[in-house]
Amino acid sequence: MLIKNILLPIIKKAKELFELILVTILIFVILVIPDFFLFIGDLNQYAGIRLLLTDIVGGVIAYFGYRYLFKRSDVVFERPNSRKVGITIAIFIISWLFIIYGLPALFESNQLTGSNQQAIDKILNHLTSWWSLLLFNFNIVVIAPIMEEIYYRGIMFEEAKPLGRAMQILWPTLVFALVHSPSTLAQWATYLTAGGVLMIVRVVTKKLQYTIMFHSLHNLLVLLT
């Protein structure tokens, strides 16, 4: 009776957590594949071709992630809902103002971006041709948001379901912040805020198309500013 009522549920949850960790590692490995074309070797050599390959590979990864997710749960697309679009835009404006003005005031620092953003800035400084810059911006604004939303707030969210609603929400948010390489408390606050707000949009709208829209708009504004 003791084994059935106490030990078996613990073993089951431990097994589910272990499986979620394995899925998380696999997702991390999959999502860094396109980066190999950018960060290995000198970016100045064949920059346009390497960026094109990055976009193509990223698109393929997003497609297969979508197909896998679609078989489990139809959570990616629906006919655009004006109410959900309005909610997404409202949340975006509030969160953007908080990240731009609230966090710097809270931490008395404007250094809110981690090494991930610094790597992006470094790449931008190395791009000289208009078409390589266009390909890189396309990756940042379109490909990367689609990939990350499908895998983090799509597949990872669904895989965490057996561990409860709290784990579904907290795990992808924490992993999302972690992979952006924050190194200070302020940077952790920035990425946890971004991941948390994206998760709010995911839970409220129940469709990834709105988190993709949010993520793309955020990355576009970061590039512009």
Score class of each variant (00 low, 15 high):
Phe36Met: 09
Ser95Pro: 00
Asp55Ile: 10
Leu20Cys: 07
Lys84Arg: 12
Leu31Met: 14
Val76Asn: 01
Lys71Met: 06
Thr24Asn: 07
Pro34Asn: 10
Lys13Cys: 04
Leu26Cys: 15
Phe28Ser: 10
Phe39Gln: 04
Pro80Glu: 07
Ile25Ser: 02
Asp35Cys: 07
Val32Tyr: 11
Gly58Trp: 12
Ser95Glu: 14
Ile61Tyr: 11
Ile56Lys: 06
Phe70Tyr: 11
Glu16Asp: 15
Phe70Leu: 13
Asp74Gly: 01
Ile56Arg: 08
Gln45Trp: 04
Leu8Asp: 01
Asn110Arg: 10
Trp96Asn: 07
Leu103Trp: 03
Pro34Thr: 13
Asp35Ile: 12
Phe92Gly: 07
Asp55Met: 05
Arg79Asp: 08
Leu38Lys: 08
Gly102Val: 12
Leu112Lys: 04
Ile30Gly: 02
Gly41Phe: 02
Phe77Gly: 04
Leu38Gln: 10
Glu16Lys: 08
Ile89Lys: 06
Ile100Lys: 06
Gly48Ala: 14
Thr88Leu: 05
Ala105Lys: 13
Ile27Arg: 01
Ile100Trp: 04
Pro34His: 08
Ile99His: 00
Arg79Tyr: 08
Arg79Trp: 10
Arg67Thr: 15
Leu26Met: 13
Arg72Asn: 10
Ile21Glu: 01
Ile25Arg: 02
Leu8His: 05
Lys13Arg: 15
Ser95Leu: 03
Arg79Phe: 14
Ile10Met: 15
Tyr66Leu: 06
Ile91Arg: 01
Asp35Glu: 10
Leu8Lys: 12
Lys71Tyr: 07
Leu97Asn: 02
Ile99Gln: 01
Gly65His: 06
Leu53Cys: 14
Trp96Phe: 15
